[in-house]
């Protein structure tokens, strides 16, 4: 009798687990399929935007070759470099902004602190592109809307406002014991030294997070790039280029290259992530000794 009970419990557990796993497998497949499809399409040898089969019939590297060599109409390598440069600079600047603002909000006490945090919260609720026309005219007024200054303008656009997104990093800094700061002050450290020598080394995960999010934004932003670059195709970013590839005139020839371009964009982002991933683990381990 007793034995029978255990078997039925076992079977029941087995059945529940199976159902759960099947559900998870289906969800995972649903989630991964679009990505897999884009990757497969980027290697598709058949031309055109529509195929009757889900999987390509034959594979080729030509799409990638065309993407990087056929530059007379859509200069993808140029766009890629533009975006990379913009991404690197805006990543550096906005990471500095975010961490500085977060540190101030977390550690310093001043009159405007609460009002500022409320204000940032409210402003953050509005979509950024609401201000795009205003941003364009301001950039034009200070002479950043033409020629090579467009890159500077884009770096500004992607980095200047990031100080408002301090909430997550501030929340992280709040968890670092204040006693560490106080110990440093006793040793004669300035506020900036505490920030760079004590807080920063303890906040690697959040730095990684900030770097990644600010590096990604120029790659995925379309609206600001379109408004600011206008007709200056030399300064287009990849987002505009990929959008162009799907225009009526290009879609038939460029559709598979579009998929290839989408795959290429993920490379720098993935590389940065892999490089920074190891810092995710560190965290607070070994911060306070003894």
């Amino acid at each position: 009798m007793k034995k029978k009970e255990t078997t039925s419990a076992k079977t029941r557990r087995f059945i529940t687990n199976s159902i759960v796993h099947i559900c998870l497998a289906i969800l995972a497949a649903v989630w991964v399929f679009p990505i897999l499809w884009v990757v497969l399409t980027s290697f598709r040898a058949e031309k055109g935007s529509y195929t009757t089969t889900f999987l390509p019939k034959s594979y080729t590297l030509d799409n990638y070759i065309k993407l990087f060599t056929d530059t007379t109409v859509l200069d993808f390598p140029q766009m890629f470099m533009n975006t990379l440069i913009i991404a690197i600079f805006s990543c550096l600047i906005s990471t500095f902004f975010v961490l500085s603002v977060s540190y101030c909000m977390s550690r310093l006490r001043f009159k405007m602190r609460k009002p500022y945090m409320n204000m940032a919260m409210i402003i953050g609720l509005f979509p950024g592109f609401m201000s795009m026309v205003a941003v364009y005219y301001i950039l034009k007024a200070i002479g950043l809307s033409e020629g090579s200054m467009i890159r500077v303008a884009l770096v500004l656009v992607y980095s200047a406002g990031t100080g408002l997104g301090f909430q997550i990093a501030k929340g992280f800094f709040d968890t670092i014991p204040k006693s560490l700061d106080e110990a440093a002050y006793l040793d004669g450290a300035t506020k900036f030294q505490v920030f760079t020598k004590v807080t920063m080394p303890l906040s690697k995960p959040i730095i990684v997070y900030t770097v990644l999010t600010s590096f990604i934004s120029p790659w995925v932003d379309f609206i600001f790039a379109k408004v600011i670059c206008r007709a200056e195709s030399k300064y287009y970013t990849v987002a505009i280029g990929l959008w162009k590839m799907l225009e009526k005139e290009y879609i038939d020839n460029w559709y598979t290259c579009f998929a290839a371009g989408a795959v290429c964009i993920s490379i720098p982002i993935a590389a940065l992530f892999m490089f920074m991933q190891r810092y995710y683990v560190d965290g607070l381990s070994g911060a306070v000794k003894g």
Partner: peptide, 21 residues
């Protein structure tokens, strides 16, 4: 020279006619 497909003139020129082609 600038790049603007014929159908996009509406969007690109009207965005800022004083700075358009």
């Amino acid at each position: 020279y600038g790049v603007c497909a014929e159908g996009d003139a509406k969007a690109m020129v009207t965005q800022d006619p004083t700075a358009a082609a």
